[in-house]
């Protein structure tokens, strides 16, 4: 049984904001199915009472004084923008 269907791959691509062709969708379905099938070996392990690890060091809530500092200059920040206008990032129409 396949772990991920062609339709699911298209849905995931959409969620990830990737445009993929029909051919690519088929290729990724095959490859992702193999990887996910491989990953299911983790089910051999009983992890019911095992806490998850999201961070390896015992560090929590690293705090600092809330002192305002100047940010990067606006013209610098806009320097790499593909398009800009009036000190702002410019993008194509959001509303049709």
């Amino acid at each position: 049984m396949s772990r991920i269907s062609l339709e699911q791959v298209k849905h995931v691509a959409d969620l990830a904001r990737l445009a993929i062709t029909e051919e690519e969708a088929e290729m990724f379905t095959k490859q992702l199915d193999a990887i996910i099938t491989f990953a299911e070996q983790l089910n051999e392990l009983d992890t019911e009472n095992v806490p998850p690890t999201s961070h390896v060091l015992d560090m929590r809530n690293v705090m600092r004084e809330d002192i305002p500092e100047p940010g990067l200059p606006r013209e610098e920040v806009l320097k790499n923008a593909p398009d800009q206008q009036d000190g702002q990032f410019r993008v194509p129409a959001i509303l049709e």
Partner: peptide, 18 residues
């Protein structure tokens, strides 16, 4: 939006991302 490559082929924002 902020840096790097941007497609020339998009008419709206979602298409631009994708």
């Amino acid at each position: 939006v902020r840096y790097g490559y941007r497609t020339d082929n998009a008419k709206n924002l979602i298409d631009m991302y994708k």
